[in-house]
């Protein structure tokens, strides 16, 4: 990175550290932080969408649709979520390959599961065996995002379902009195009002989502945990210009600090949003604001 880094063995102290922290592998480590943020940025809205759909179908007057929605919400309870993560990554991958296999190779007569193997035709492989490395990585990341979204979508559905029921009944009755249809009262009355009830649960969920991101490591993504283990391990002079002992504890300390700061900042921000949303609402927090002004 810097011009004085040409021969690290002559350096010491801070200059050595500045060179060490800007090596190529460390840049990959820093990019991995970007990966975590990217995962959060994609997962949060997608999971919210899944959650909204789940809650909507759980409220549906059509019984089978309501069962489906309720089953989706209930399925994440009682089972460790990490089991879901490990399960969905393989299950989704096999599901996609199975579907492609059915479409692309209709004249394949052998069974797909042969003992301990899962065999689909070459054309159905995802990504294709000949695909470049970045496609494999992107596909892996895509699977991870989808897995996170499914699991967190169920959590969000639970929160939103509760929030929809928390909207005062009188509001909906008024809507009916005005002659609104079910659909109209849902979109015009229920949905705008439910957010203030959903926000405490959703902000809790956001914190949980942040704290779940290191599980990316279990899904086979080269994330910050992966790099912290790689970079922190003992390095001998034979393989690197920057030999050092076992520094993994320091790398994980850095991750710990990163997450603590991240959750702390989120907490402050979400508090502020809650303040803003409560303004003028018929809730205890809104009432308190009104009193403070008066």
């Amino acid at each position: 990175m810097f011009s004085y880094c040409a021969d690290p063995s002559t350096l010491s102290g801070l200059t050595w550290l500045s060179c060490y922290l800007t090596t190529g592998v460390h840049m990959s480590f820093y990019t991995a932080f970007g990966k975590v943020l990217l995962l959060l940025a994609i997962t949060a809205p997608v999971a919210l969408g899944f959650g909204f759909l789940g809650a909507m179908s759980a409220r549906s007057p059509v019984a089978p649709v309501a069962w489906l929605g309720k089953a989706y919400i209930a399925v994440v309870r009682g089972v460790p979520d990490i089991a879901f993560f490990l399960f969905f990554v393989i299950a989704l991958d096999q599901g996609f390959e199975y579907l492609r296999h059915k479409v692309l190779c209709p004249d394949w007569d052998q069974p797909i599961r042969q003992g301990n193997d899962f065999i689909v035709c070459q054309a159905a492989k995802l990504p294709l065996g000949s695909a470049p490395e970045w496609q494999h990585e992107t596909y892996g990341f895509f699977l991870a995002v989808l897995t996170f979204s499914i699991v967190f979508g169920a959590f969000a559905a639970n929160v939103i379902f509760g929030a929809m029921r928390a909207v005062p009944r009188a509001q909906m009755e008024t809507a009916e009195a005005f002659g609104m249809t079910r659909r109209q009262s849902f979109w015009r009355i229920l949905v705008p009002q439910m957010w203030v009830y959903a926000l405490p649960g959703l902000s809790n969920l956001w914190m949980v989502l942040i704290k779940a991101t290191p599980l990316l490591f279990l899904l086979g993504i080269e994330d910050i945990v992966y790099w912290a283990r790689e970079l922190g391990g003992t390095k001998t002079p034979r393989f690197t210009d920057y030999p050092h002992g076992d520094w993994r504890v320091w790398y994980f300390l850095a991750l710990l600090v990163f997450y603590l700061t991240f959750t702390r900042v989120s907490e402050k921000l979400l508090d502020r949003i809650m303040q803003r949303l409560s303004h003028g609402q018929a809730t205890a927090a809104g009432e308190a604001q009104r009193r403070a002004q008066a």
Binding site: I210, K211, A212, T213, P214, L215, F217, V225, A228, R229, G232, D246, R248, V249, F252, L253, L255, L256, Y259, L260, T263, R264
Partner: peptide, 22 residues
């Protein structure tokens, strides 16, 4: 409370393990 609730358990495990190791 802040330290243990604000960081992922997964990272706490890793950190503790490597701390004990060193």
């Amino acid at each position: 409370i802040l330290l243990f609730r604000g960081s992922p358990l997964f990272i706490q495990f890793f950190f503790a393990y490597f701390l004990f190791l060193s």
